[in-house]
Design a binder for these strands. Structure first.
Lengths: 208, 208
DNA sequence: TTGTCAATTGTCAGCCACTGTCACTAATCT
DNA sequence: AGATTAGTGACAGTGGCTGACAATTGACAA
């Protein structure tokens, strides 16, 4: 934080972010207007839009960090791990680093509430899914490079990532509608669900 | 079509739908205003919103039919098929029935253009993904019932569906960005990608 | 320190999606 | 034919978002 100007800007941005998340999670996303957020920080609506391109964008600021952390997590996996293994490890032990990174910006509890809000607000859920797709594309390219194949001719990178993402989405949803919002819960759920994929696919579920 | 009133309504709805799709696919979704659509049919903007809850809704009218058709397709699969097999069959031979159902409402070519527009327009893509999630939930419940398990305690139905949906999404995307928009192309691509899932997951891709 | 330049902000005007209200017209029913 | 009801247009208003311009405030050099 060099100059006074930069510090002021940072403060305004932080204030807007916090006011927005606080209002969103208490009143609801749709029920909160951009004017409300701006008023809470005592700046004009126009200023809000100079810091955030859209109302949606504020809602995803923290998510954005977690997405980036995951991508880096995958990139950092040792080369000898098979693709699926690398993804699994990146998620399972990515939660801790995530926890730290997030809590430096907002209270973790606020992040969790925001996550549930996203899952339960149709417009936000839609945006979340689209963002996830973009992340998937990045991951697919990373895997392709790791394994020395071409993303555009070999479908395997995108397929693995899509399958993995599907499982994660089911996991997230289960977690966000459950009762235990702890890190342990999500970690355990992730591991368990990933283990179930094989059996589920192979499945004759009716067997004893 | 009983009364004159009903016929008139149907005609207005059709006209709005066609005008909307035509404008969307030529000018682009965002570049088309609801006023444009209403003007093209010579009704007021207010009337447009009496037929469609939102601008988005018109864009998905045809998609909505295909989604419903797929759900019915799965429901109709013989009980002896394993879950994954049932899904695969429902998709692969669902395309033909789909083709007919769609062409009764709009030219197939318009449907294809609309599909590509959805894939390439961020807001529409987001909406599409959320809708797909709702379809996934329905399918998961159907599978659970077929196999006699409980969706809320056994994760397998949702997992299988999520994995399958992931593959289908990769397929759709590949198809929509490719050059061959024929039914044969999508059918072949679907079959091929589904076959690749096993190898991709198991994978040591670097093996000769 | 002060004057100049550049960055930040507020104000205002306007577009577009969407909603409520009310009066008017045209189809339907008796 | 007259009363009823459904469908429509006109209008006003809200909320997200953008462009333009002017006022303010910090940065930096003379």
């Amino acid at each position: 934080m060099e100059t006074l100007r930069e510090r002021k800007k940072q403060r305004t941005r932080d204030a807007l972010l916090h006011a927005a998340l606080e209002l969103f999670t208490t009143r609801g996303y749709e029920a909160t207007t951009v004017d409300d957020v701006a008023a809470a920080v005592d700046v004009s609506q126009r200023t809000f839009f100079r810091y955030f391109a859209s109302k949606e964008e504020v809602a995803f600021v923290v998510q954005h960090m977690t997405e980036a952390a995951f991508v880096e997590g995958v990139r950092a996996r040792p080369a000898h791990e098979a693709p699926m293994e690398a993804l699994r490890q990146a998620v399972v032990d990515g939660w801790d680093r995530l926890h730290e990174a997030v809590s430096a910006v907002v209270p973790v509890e606020l992040y969790l509430r925001m996550y549930q809000l996203i899952e339960s607000t149709p417009v936000l859920l839609a945006a979340h899914l689209r963002r996830s797709m973009e992340v998937e594309e990045k991951i697919a390219r990373i895997l392709a490079e790791r394994e020395g194949v071409d993303v555009d001719t070999d479908p395997r990178p995108r397929l693995v990532v899509a399958v993995f993402a599907g499982v994660i989405r089911v996991t997230e949803r289960q977690w966000s509608t459950g009762e235990d919002f702890s890190l342990e819960a999500i970690r355990e759920l992730t591991a368990r669900y990933l283990d179930q994929v094989g059996p589920a696919l192979a499945g004759d579920w009716r067997a004893p």
